[in-house]
Amino acid sequence: MKRLSTLVLVAALAGCASTGQEPVADVPAITTTVSSLADITYVPIKVYNQTIAIERPINSTTEVLQLNEKNSPVAGWKLPDYGVYQFKVESLITRRGFGTRAEAFTPEIWLLDSDFKPLQKLPASRLKYDEQSMLTRENLSTEFVLDNRTSSGKQPAYLLALTTEEARQVSLKVANFDEEYARIRARTAPPTGDIYTEAVADGTLRLQITPLLSQPARETRITPPPRPDYVPSTPDIVQKDKASNVSETINQDYLDAVQSALDGKDINQALSLRSAIRQLHITLQQQFSASYDVDKSSLKPPASLPENAAIEASISYYYQQQIILALKQDNPQAALAWIDQVDQLAWEVDQLF
């Protein structure tokens, strides 16, 4: 009897404990609804000298804009104040039904001025389909170039991605995985129809920004120092070739080369010259750092150049030689001034585009 009472007591206690284990309901996410473009949260875009990628999920926590009695999820960014940038906006595709359905958020892109008024609207009809690759998922994308170098008139200050009734009607044909698999395996594809994207109110946006010209404008020009009056003690310090006699005119020669490429519509050559002068600025800083606190007798000028050397090689030779000469004279300030002159030249190259 005592054992039975103990079992009853344990069962009663277990029953009391179970009454507190009730299912907890999911708390719905709070969605912020705005009625004005100025009330949207705009995230600043910070881009320097290399391509960046920003992802933004579109889900239940995304701000919603009331637009013409219709609601649309919105994603906003604050654009850089100065520069030329290439933008690529991607909307990632989600597959369902074993790959037979493709869903995506179909965005319109609005460029707004500083007063949050639309300057340009890029409709969803511009979207194109990008197949899946090793680096990215399949997506719908649109591209454009932003030039914010001019200060006169209105220029874009904000970027807004949203969807409209027209955008929801956009449907693009996408890859049929069954057909792709059958083609690779040399088999007959199953009788499946074409697959088109379906517009949905959620997804993932990816913003890819590539700086073309991002260096800010400057108001002052750095005047290069006079060439140091240095006479080497050994004849191998200064090589008697074409590059050793180059003066300040080499800067103008370089600018003329860039301008000639632009006039000839050879944008690849112009961009190559732009990259070369930027790389030279980095190389000279590394050379200065490596040579700053070493025995001056160990400093050697760069190897001589052939007569038909390219302008990139000639200007590199010239400035490296000037830095070596300045350091041999124990004048690091003059060496830094030569480096600054290359930085100034890089800025002047940007102004030609």
Rank of each mutant, 00 (worst) to 15 (best):
residue 209 I to A: 03
residue 246 V to Q: 07
residue 217 A to E: 14
residue 242 K to L: 10
residue 240 K to T: 08
residue 167 A to G: 06
residue 186 A to C: 13
residue 215 Q to S: 09
residue 225 P to E: 08
residue 267 I to F: 14
residue 188 T to W: 07
residue 280 L to S: 01
residue 277 I to Q: 00
residue 196 Y to H: 14
residue 188 T to P: 05
residue 258 V to C: 02
residue 251 N to S: 05
residue 270 A to H: 01
residue 264 G to W: 05
residue 201 A to S: 15
residue 257 A to S: 14
residue 259 Q to C: 01
residue 247 S to F: 04
residue 189 A to G: 09
residue 219 E to Y: 10
residue 247 S to H: 03
residue 248 E to T: 07
residue 194 D to L: 07
residue 264 G to C: 03
residue 196 Y to D: 11
residue 229 D to W: 08
residue 177 F to K: 11
residue 274 R to E: 03
residue 278 R to C: 01
residue 184 I to F: 13
residue 235 P to D: 07
residue 234 T to N: 13
residue 273 L to M: 09
residue 208 Q to V: 14
residue 168 R to G: 03
residue 252 Q to C: 05
residue 232 P to Q: 09
residue 272 S to D: 13
residue 239 Q to M: 10
residue 241 D to C: 11
residue 234 T to D: 11
residue 188 T to L: 10
residue 166 E to S: 12
residue 164 T to E: 05
residue 197 T to N: 04
residue 212 L to W: 02
residue 204 T to G: 04
residue 232 P to V: 04
residue 216 P to M: 03
residue 271 L to V: 10
residue 181 Y to E: 15
residue 189 A to R: 12
residue 261 A to W: 01
residue 224 P to S: 04
residue 278 R to F: 02
residue 195 I to T: 02
residue 175 A to N: 10
residue 271 L to G: 01
residue 224 P to C: 01
residue 236 D to V: 04
residue 165 E to T: 12
residue 264 G to D: 13
residue 177 F to L: 14
residue 203 G to P: 02
residue 216 P to L: 08
residue 253 D to E: 13
residue 261 A to N: 04
residue 220 T to V: 10
residue 244 S to V: 05
residue 261 A to F: 00
residue 217 A to V: 12
residue 224 P to A: 05
residue 235 P to Y: 11
residue 172 L to P: 01
residue 174 V to I: 12
residue 280 L to A: 01
residue 266 D to M: 08
residue 167 A to L: 00
residue 263 D to L: 05
residue 209 I to Q: 02
residue 220 T to R: 12
residue 222 I to H: 07
residue 159 L to E: 04
residue 268 N to D: 15
residue 271 L to H: 07
residue 213 L to W: 04
residue 204 T to L: 14
residue 181 Y to G: 14
residue 232 P to N: 06
residue 239 Q to C: 06
residue 164 T to Q: 01
residue 188 T to Y: 07
residue 253 D to M: 09
residue 263 D to Q: 15
residue 277 I to N: 00
residue 178 D to Y: 15
residue 221 R to I: 09
residue 245 N to I: 05
residue 229 D to I: 03
residue 176 N to K: 05
residue 219 E to A: 12
residue 222 I to M: 11
residue 239 Q to W: 10
residue 196 Y to Q: 13
residue 189 A to C: 13
residue 215 Q to F: 06
residue 249 T to K: 14
residue 182 A to E: 08
residue 215 Q to I: 03
residue 193 G to P: 01
residue 271 L to Y: 11
residue 253 D to C: 03
residue 228 P to D: 09
residue 161 A to V: 02
residue 192 T to G: 10
residue 209 I to L: 10
residue 222 I to V: 15
residue 238 V to M: 04
residue 219 E to H: 12
residue 268 N to A: 15
residue 179 E to S: 12
residue 277 I to S: 00
residue 253 D to V: 02
residue 191 P to I: 07
residue 208 Q to M: 11
residue 183 R to D: 11
residue 239 Q to G: 04
residue 233 S to W: 07
residue 199 A to F: 00
residue 232 P to M: 09
residue 193 G to Y: 02
residue 260 S to C: 09
residue 218 R to F: 07
residue 236 D to A: 06
residue 160 L to F: 06
residue 268 N to R: 13
